[in-house]
Design a protein around this nucleic acid. Structure first.
Lengths: 237, 237
DNA sequence: TCTTCTAATTGACTTTGGTCAAGGAGGAAT
DNA sequence: ATTCCTCCTTGACCAAAGTCAATTAGAAGA
């Protein structure tokens, strides 16, 4: 099995024993769009690493209203927090862009994290990053309006240090981007039009073109406590 | 120095060396309402434990708009994530209800967490709890309306397993509760009135009386993906 | 007790986003 | 090409929350 996906945080410092266990017990599989990997409050025996594709983490109320916990690209892992919650899944997970996902028994991770303090520290660092990301998310929901949130979302999809024109592709359906940003599809559609009018971006389907990031960042980052460019994106690399 | 505040998560498993270092370097002090402990993006050399009182963690934009990261009661620690962010404070901290706060050099914690795997695991568990709390926060901001959010807030202040009448005291100013819940003071005021009308609670200043939790939980928890009573509150104890 | 200041409420109005319903655009399969 | 289906957009309307301004209630101090 290809081990390259494990060159990602937080597994740089995992032991050979861990990687050997992976070779034996990790299971890599291709999934179609729409595949539900597990549901909220299921017993969790695995955690997952996304090799390609996108995964949506979400929960829903009795009446079916969904709330998106996160939408993750390749290179991310999820479900690992079940280690610390009596093996109960804190959310449901669905594949939204087809891809290959590796499932790994939590037991392996548990053993490793209990014996390898380096890994534990790396996980702490990665949890900290996630925590701050959520802090920012909550902040943006309260102080940014819909067009600003979209602008911020776009800016975070591109290399913020490049100057000059840029082309940004939406990584998944607009409906989902809307949900990810906590708004209705109709609102998203109208807000995108407003963003276009305010910042001069050009939109064609799932593609957004802009002459430079300045107009966009000025418009969106005015309602953010951090400066542009976003420091956390640098740190992630 | 009284060590009782350190019988809290995540320090149950810290070493004697750690506690000895605390005795030497931890500093306990009484602060007035309004005292700023540190500012967003300051260099962080300490983390803090609240012995009594309440602390607000927040950030603000250039134009002064504040967003509340969290409001913490006695028994909680904060500022510890700076360990993993090049010692930069991820938020500002202000005392909002006077009390005693212990400041501890991050170095001590760093040393301990790097050498004591048990502590690292406990911190991971506590980070996980926090992460899920934030997940819930984001969820509530999107699917609960203002009166429901207040109801949920109240329910989380009281023992959810007791039946019969209950009295709940707001732990800090209404203006702050409003900010904590991501709404304007005016909205809070009106939403509280609506909650009263819908659930029959009785409000007198900062005191809320109710005959039982049923009406309130039915009203608020309808727009939540978790069941009443809230499991995470149990787990925290 | 009286004054002063801040917190909280209330009213009138505006803005934003949500809801419901109807089309339209684009891709995949036939 | 044609059909079908899903995603997206648009319009008309509504509901929720924000804003601005005026008042009131309550707590702290003189």
């Amino acid at each position: 099995m290809d081990m390259s996906p494990f060159q990602i945080p937080p597994f740089q410092n995992a032991s050979d024993v861990f990687f050997k266990a992976l070779q034996e017990h990790a299971h890599s599989q291709k999934y179609k769009k729409g595949k539900i990997l597990f549901v909220h409050e299921d017993r969790a025996n695995f955690f997952y690493v996304i090799q390609t594709g996108w995964v949506k983490l979400f929960r829903e109320t009795i009446d079916g209203t969904q709330s998106i916990v996160d939408i993750l690209p390749a290179g991310h892992l999820f479900g690992e927090t079940a280690l610390f919650t009596q093996n109960l899944s804190p959310y449901s997970a669905e594949v939204i862009e087809p891809g290959i996902i590796i499932s790994i028994p939590l037991k392996i991770l548990k053993k490793e994290v209990e014996s390898n303090n380096k890994l534990a520290l790396d996980m702490l660092a990665s949890m900290t990053r996630y925590r701050h990301q959520q802090d920012r998310e909550i902040e943006h929901r309260t102080i940014q309006n819909a067009p600003q949130r979209i602008g911020c979302f776009l800016l975070r999809l591109t290399d913020q240090n490049k100057s000059g024109p840029a082309i940004i592709h939406l990584p998944y359906d607009k409906t989902l981007v809307a949900a990810r940003l906590g708004m209705q599809p109709e609102t998203f559609s109208r807000a995108l039009a407003k963003l276009k009018e305010k910042t001069g971006i050009r939109i064609k389907g799932a593609t957004v073109e802009l002459n430079n990031l300045d107009q966009l960042s000025q418009y969106s980052c005015a309602a953010c406590s951090s400066e542009f460019p976003c420091k956390d994106l640098q740190a992630a690399k």
